[in-house]
Simulated scan of single mutants.
Amino acid sequence: MDRHNRAIDPIELRRAFGTFVTGVTVVTTRDEDGEPRGMTANSFTSVSLDPPLLLVCVNKSASSFPAFATTQSFAVNLLHEGQVDVSAIFASKSLNKFDAVNVDSVHTGAPVLTDSLTWFDCTVHSRVDAGDHIVLIGHVRAFGTSPATPLGFCRGRYVSVNDPLPTGWSASQSMVVGYLIEGSDSILLRCDEKGHLSLPTARTRKADNQVVLASGQSVSVEPERTFLYSVFDVADSAPGYLIYRASIAADAARDLPEGLQFFPIDDLPYERIPSREMKAVLRRYARERKGRRFGIYMDSRNGGRVAMIESEGLYGA
C-alpha cells in the first residue's frame, strides 16, 4: 500500500487533533418537547463577523444529537476554569445535567448558562453533514462575556490559561442593566425554569417609556420616572450591574411578558432569589420605601456606600 492510500489510525489521529489547545463549551438547545438538551464540545470556532457566524460540531453518537439535528436555535456556552465539573456532567449521559447549572432564555429561547465565561445565543444558519458529525453554523443573535479565566483543554486533559485578560481589554461588553419596576405595592421579578427569581434585565440603560428586556420583549413604564438606584460588581467572573428603579405604566400590569410576575414588596420570596447581591438590593429598596427616602448605592473596594437623596420630589415617589 503506498503512503498516500494507507489507512489512518483513528486513535492516533484523535491524539494529533488533541494537541491543538482549545477552550471547552457546553452547547445547548431544546428538543421538540421543549426540554433542555446539552453536551460538552470543544470543536468550536468563529466564522464571520458580518454576518456574525460561528460553528460547532456535534457528534452523531451523542444522545442529544436528534435535538441538534432538527433545532432552529442553540446556544454555545464557553466555560471558565471553575467549571470543570460542568464540563464533566455535560460530557456524561446523565439525565439531570441541567440540575447542576442555572439557565436563562435570552433571545432565541435556547438555554443559556448564566455562569459561564461567554455565551452566544444563535439561530441555525445552516447544517453541514460531515462524516460522524454535523457542523452547526449559527447566526449570533445575542452574546455576553466576562473577565473570568477560560477553561482550556489539550491532549485529553484540562489545562490552565495564563494572563487571560491582557491590559486594556474590557472586562465585559457592558454592564448588566437591571430594572426594579414597581406597581401596586409590588415588584416585578423574572422567574426562570427552576423557579429562581431575579430582576428583569434590559438591553439598554435608562429607558424612556419602554424597558426593552434582554428577551426582546418590553414593559411600559412611566416616562420621566426612571432613576439610577444601584451600581455594583458581583464577582471577578461576572460583569457589574446597573440597577434602575421605575414605575409600571397604567394598564401595563395586565399584559406582562411571559416569565414576569409581580410580588408584594412586604412579602418578597427571598428564598427563591439565588443572588446575594439581588437580595441586598431588594431588601434595601423595601426598607427605604417605607421611609420614602431613597438612596443610590455605589460599589467600591471598601464595600461601597449609599448616597441618600434628601428630597423625595427630586427622585420620584
Rank of each mutant, 00 (worst) to 15 (best):
P200A: 07
T204P: 01
T204F: 12
R205V: 03
A207Q: 13
A207C: 14
Q210V: 10
V211P: 01
V212H: 07
V212C: 10
L213G: 13
L213K: 05
A214G: 08
S215C: 14
Q217A: 14
V219M: 09
V219Y: 13
S220N: 10
V221A: 11
E222A: 13
P223A: 10
E224S: 07
E224I: 04
R225D: 07
T226G: 13
Y229G: 05
Y229K: 04
S230P: 04
F232V: 01
F232W: 10
F232Y: 15
F232R: 07
V234M: 09
A235M: 08
A235D: 14
A238H: 14
G240K: 09
Y241P: 00
L242V: 06
L242A: 03
L242E: 14
A246N: 15
S247I: 05
I248N: 01
I248M: 15
A250E: 15
A252D: 04
A253M: 11
A253R: 10
L256P: 11
P257S: 10
P257M: 02
P257T: 00
G259C: 04
G259N: 07
L260G: 11
L260D: 07
Q261W: 03
Q261T: 14
Q261D: 01
F262H: 10
F262C: 13
F263N: 05
F263R: 08
F263V: 05
P264M: 08
I265T: 15
D266N: 13
D266I: 01
D267C: 11
L268I: 15
L268H: 12
P269A: 02
Y270E: 02
E271T: 04
E271P: 02
R272N: 12
R272D: 12
S275L: 13
S275H: 04
R276F: 06
E277P: 00
E277R: 00
M278D: 04
V281C: 09
R283G: 01
R287L: 06
E288N: 06
R292V: 02
R292P: 00
F294N: 06
G295R: 09
I296D: 00
M298S: 12
D299Q: 01
N302Y: 03
G303E: 12
G303N: 03
